[in-house]
Amino acid sequence: MAGKFVISKDKRGEYRFKLVAANGQTIAVSEGYSTKVACVNGVESVRKNAPDATVDDTTLASV
C-alpha cells in the first residue's frame, strides 16, 4: 500500500491534511485551511510540487 493523504476537520473548524506512510506513520501535517476546497488544493500542490524534492539540511556545518 502506498502512502495516503488524510483530510480532517479540527476543533477550530479548520481543515487539515496529513501525509501518512504505508506503515501508518504520519510524515507531514498541513496548516489549517478555512475551506475543504482550499485543503484539497493544498494536497494537490504537494503532489505537484514535491514529487522529486531534495533535502536542504541547513544544520550541517560547512567544512
Rank of each mutant, 00 (worst) to 15 (best):
16 R>L: 12
25 Q>C: 06
24 G>T: 08
13 G>M: 11
38 A>W: 09
22 A>S: 15
52 D>H: 11
48 K>Y: 07
32 G>T: 00
51 P>L: 00
10 D>I: 02
54 T>P: 14
47 R>D: 02
55 V>C: 09
21 A>P: 12
19 L>C: 02
49 N>K: 14
25 Q>R: 13
52 D>R: 14
38 A>T: 08
6 V>C: 08
33 Y>C: 02
36 K>S: 02
23 N>S: 13
49 N>I: 05
33 Y>N: 06
17 F>G: 00
39 C>I: 02
1 M>K: 07
53 A>K: 01
27 I>Q: 05
18 K>M: 10
60 L>P: 04
38 A>N: 11
9 K>F: 00
35 T>W: 06
20 V>P: 12
61 A>D: 02
42 G>T: 08
21 A>W: 10
9 K>Q: 13
20 V>H: 07
27 I>C: 06
35 T>R: 07
32 G>D: 08
50 A>Y: 13
52 D>Y: 03
58 T>A: 11
24 G>Q: 07
6 V>Q: 09
54 T>E: 15
42 G>P: 10
25 Q>K: 15
63 V>E: 06
11 K>V: 08
24 G>C: 10
19 L>E: 05
3 G>A: 05
23 N>A: 10
42 G>A: 14
13 G>T: 02
21 A>R: 15
42 G>Q: 09
30 S>R: 03
45 S>Q: 10
35 T>L: 07
48 K>G: 06
29 V>I: 04
22 A>L: 03
40 V>E: 15
3 G>D: 03
40 V>N: 08
5 F>M: 02
38 A>R: 01
16 R>A: 06
56 D>R: 08
16 R>T: 03
12 R>M: 12
31 E>A: 10
37 V>W: 11
45 S>E: 02
52 D>K: 15
6 V>F: 03
59 T>L: 09
31 E>M: 13
56 D>A: 10
54 T>D: 15
60 L>E: 11
4 K>E: 14
29 V>A: 07
24 G>L: 06
41 N>H: 05
60 L>I: 11
1 M>P: 15
9 K>G: 09
24 G>V: 12
13 G>R: 12
41 N>K: 15
20 V>R: 11
35 T>D: 10
51 P>Q: 01
37 V>L: 11
7 I>E: 13
26 T>L: 14
25 Q>F: 06
39 C>L: 02
22 A>E: 05
18 K>Q: 15
14 E>L: 11
5 F>V: 13
45 S>Y: 10
36 K>A: 01
36 K>G: 03
35 T>E: 02
3 G>K: 01
60 L>C: 06
57 D>S: 06
30 S>I: 08
26 T>S: 07
13 G>N: 12
27 I>D: 06
23 N>F: 06
45 S>M: 01
